[in-house]
Design a binder for these strands. Structure first.
Lengths: 125, 125
DNA sequence: CTAAAACCTGACGTTGACGTCAGAGGCAAG
DNA sequence: CTTGCCTCTGACGTCAACGTCAGGTTTTAG
């Protein structure tokens, strides 16, 4: 089943997406504004989402937590949607991977320093 | 020799501290404004730092990278200076440690997802 | 039918660690 | 002495992902 084909699925409103993904309604609107998430509209103008919008929003959160910007995510979304990538996208993917790995290393180093202090302060109360 | 205490050492100006620690002059002034770094003053008002200000600034950078705020760092500085801590400080240390650990886990999960996509896009060029 | 709950579109506010600019001194070299 | 670099104090600007408020429409529960 492709994206455009999308048989008659149960469509949900923004509140259900927000609750389901654990974010605010404002956040979901923001994602649309940034081009991350496209919603159908009801005749009265309310946003209607397919159910897979919920794991998608969770995924956005994960990428945000990893330090990607919404712009970068939009640039990389086709990699997930179609599985097809050009050279530039593959380069971005690796760049982000490397950046995140470096961040993990930094955090681990900070963690070690904190643990060191904790060990000292625990033996010197 | 603790961090704050020190004998008559060669004092350096802000530019040398900034270059030595790999940050901007503005950043060093900001740290003073936030109460992280205290500087002597020359008769003309220029900031004079002891040389151990340089590793200290590096340490601040490391903590910033780990997501601590300048306020939190000021609250925890005594743990490094004196080695003495009260219950509240030990609780903060552990809270930060746990937060960083959780962040590492999140980053690792994001990393795995990216690697997954990279592997796919590499086999489907 | 009505009231509450949910949704809409702007649009301004928040946070943290600085960047940047303006205007005014200070300091060693030639 | 003056040139050029360094430093000073404000003070406003930046960026990203939302929070929040205002004022209005829509959907739903009873």
């Amino acid at each position: 089943m492709t994206v455009t084909e999308a048989a008659a699925e149960r469509l949900v409103r923004i509140g259900e997406v927000a609750r389901g993904a654990g974010v605010s309604v404002r956040a979901v609107r923001y994602y649309e504004q940034q081009g991350l998430l496209i919603a159908e509209r009801s005749p009265s103008g309310q946003r209607l989402y397919r159910q897979d919008a919920i794991p998608l929003v969770r995924f956005f959160q994960q990428m945000f937590a990893a330090g990607l910007t919404s712009r970068r995510i939009t640039e990389l979304l086709p990699c997930w949607d179609s599985g097809h990538t050009d050279a530039e996208q593959r380069a971005m993917l690796r760049a982000e991977r490397d950046r995140i790995q470096a961040k993990v290393d930094d955090l681990q180093a900070a963690l070690d320093r904190l643990d060191e202090v904790i060990a000292i302060t625990d033996t010197h109360p």
